[in-house]
Design a protein around this nucleic acid. Structure first.
Length: 325
DNA sequence: AGGCATAGGCCTATTACCTCA
DNA sequence: CATGAGGTAATAGGCCTATGC
């Protein structure tokens, strides 16, 4: 079975269609096979890409790719439009930065004055919309300079209660410090991620303000969270494909046995063979209306693509981050 | 209109630190 | 107490799109 993960063909960022490409590969390479229906968008993710007015995309299947994006296989909607649409929907969801899940949560102590500041703060995070052409932060090929990158995260970091709250033990100047988010912060971020797994700048700033974090920290958390989700989905997909492979292997064996039996019968009693009804395993492909014969399986040649037979339903990872037991 | 530079976002891979068994 | 594994915050670099000139 050919398994080509060619997500880059679909999405230059490699973020799209892992499940899609895997499913397509298995479908085309190992018929008879029924493609599982595209998994419905998990409601808790709260993101859907409906055609927007400027790009009236025809109704097409949009598959959740497990990494936080919906992929419209043949739609002309580019990523930026999708992202912009995400923003619009998320803005609506936020009700002007009203985030209900933030209410009633005691988010750490105030970072002001007495909070641990190990290094200088980052100007980017003090001005979340640092789009000024004069911004020194963006002077290096559109990236944050490494110097400020390394320092910008530690200014307002809120340490978990009971953590190593030794801001003065800088571990030798240049070494970065691993600071964990509090449970409350993580919970709020998780709730936010369930609603929308990407943030626009305003949402990021609002969330960061509510959590006493740097916007960059929120951004990093979301990036890592998306990566974890995708990794989990990949693992789920691998298991799914293994089951598909097992199913197809067994089906292939069964068909080959059947072919052998039929051939033997044809040799022994051709007149009886001629009166036999078609094998029960014959299947009409609904898409191409071609009859799948046992020879297809016997010759190991890929039958025309189309939904042929039962396969396990592809699962979609919906859980949160893995927790050590 | 097309090219170029810049800014900013996201992704992936990796590092480094922290926690826990 | 030491240690290794796992989790994850953070970094680095690349690619893409949007925007302005």
């Amino acid at each position: 079975m050919e398994m080509s993960v060619n997500a880059r063909d679909q999405d230059p960022h490699g973020s799209l269609g892992l499940g899609l490409s895997l499913s397509l590969s298995i479908a085309t390479a190992a018929a008879p096979l029924e493609l599982p229906p595209p998994p419905p968008a998990p409601a808790q993710r709260g993101i859907s890409v409906a055609p927007i007015s400027s790009h009236p995309a025809p109704p097409q299947p949009q598959w959740w790719n497990g990494a936080g994006h919906f992929f419209s296989p043949a739609s002309g909607m580019d990523r930026s439009l999708e992202r912009e649409h995400h923003y619009q929907q998320q803005q609506a969801a936020f009700h002007g930065h009203e985030m209900p899940f933030l209410r009633g949560i005691d988010v750490n102590r105030a970072p002001a004055g007495g909070e641990s500041r190990t290094r200088g703060s980052c100007s980017e995070d003090e001005e979340p919309a640092a789009s000024s052409p004069n911004s020194t932060l963006s002077s290096l090929s559109g990236k944050r300079p490494a110097a400020t990158r390394s320092g910008d995260l530690e200014g307002d970091h809120t340490l978990r209660a009971g953590g190593s709250d030794d801001e003065d033990s800088g571990a030798g100047g240049g070494s970065r410090k691993k600071l964990r988010l509090s449970k409350d912060q993580a919970a709020v971020l998780e709730e936010s991620f369930k609603e929308h797994n990407t943030l626009n700048p305003k949402q990021k700033a609002a969330l960061a303000k509510q959590l006493n974090l740097k916007p960059r920290q929120v951004e990093v958390w979301f990036q890592n969270r998306r990566a974890r989700t995708k990794l989990k989905q990949t693992e789920v997909d691998c298991e799914f494909l293994k089951r598909c492979c097992d199913t197809l292997t067994e089906e292939n064996r069964r068909l080959q046995r059947e072919v052998a039996e039929l051939r033997a019968l044809k040799l022994v009693a051709p007149h009886q063979y001629a009166r036999m009804p078609p094998p029960t395993t014959l299947t009409m492909c609904p898409s191409c209306e071609r009859l799948a014969t046992a020879d297809d399986a016997a010759a190991r040649r890929p039958a025309p693509a189309g939904p042929w037979g039962p396969v396990p339903v592809r699962p979609v990872f919906v859980d949160g981050p893995a927790r050590r037991s």
